[in-house]
């Protein structure tokens, strides 16, 4: 990031390559829709570009960009009023499964040959379970999974105590386990 702050375009390409999938994944999970995730994703990186000279060298870049992403996602949710409960139960629509969706968001293009019907059912059950988690647990879970930040950094980003982050993670994972067990999956 320090190199990008000195206007090295190549450094920005490295940053984008590193963070595009985690940031997009986080936004997609947070917002629940790929078109919204796409809008906010662009806003996040435009903000990084705009604020590059104000970036403090000692600050962890992943914490900075995920803070921007989280704040932008919160703003977007507030603006939209509510989260539209779509798409997560069907995480990738058929067009996306084939490559490129109408909104320009492509799914992972590589079909998994080992995916069985059971695997698909399990995935759907997992997505449904995730969707039912309380928002604050979901938020912590996605931040932890996608950002690679440590628990104290997540706590700082969210402005909550570390123990709160830990307990939210613990409850979230526990609920997923319970729900999948209840549905007959061995977890």
């Amino acid at each position: 990031m320090c190199r990008f702050a000195r206007d090295e375009h190549g450094a920005f390409e490295v940053l984008l390559a590193r963070y595009r999938e985690p940031i997009f994944g986080f936004l997609y999970r947070y917002l629940g829709r790929s078109d919204k995730a796409e809008d906010v994703f662009q806003d996040v990186f435009f903000e990084v570009i705009r604020a590059r000279r104000s970036y403090r060298a000692g600050f962890k870049f992943s914490a900075w960009i995920f803070r921007i992403a989280r704040n932008r996602a919160v703003d977007r949710l507030r603006r939209d009023g509510f989260r539209e409960m779509v798409s997560l139960q069907q995480p990738l629509d058929p067009q996306q499964e084939e490559g490129e969706g109408l909104d320009g968001v492509s799914s992972s293009p590589y079909p998994n040959p080992e995916e069985t019907a059971l695997g698909r059912e399990l995935r759907e059950a997992l997505e449904e379970t995730l969707e039912r988690l309380p928002a604050e647990q979901r938020e912590v879970l996605w931040l932890k999974e996608y950002s690679g930040l440590k628990i104290p950094q997540v706590a700082k980003l969210l402005g909550v105590p570390e123990n709160t982050v830990k307990s939210r993670l613990r409850y979230a994972l526990g609920k997923i386990r319970e729900e999948l067990s209840r549905r007959g999956y061995e977890v």
């Binding site: 375009h9 995480p91 977890v187």
Partner: peptide
């Protein structure tokens, strides 16, 4: 808990299109 975490990691997420990333690169 490790199994649940593994399940979460095994999910496939959508990735941003190359068109979108090119737009951002152009803006940069």
């Amino acid at each position: 808990l490790l199994k649940v975490k593994g399940l979460l990691l095994s999910r496939k997420d959508p990735v941003p299109s190359s068109l979108l990333t090119q737009r951002i690169l152009a803006h940069a």
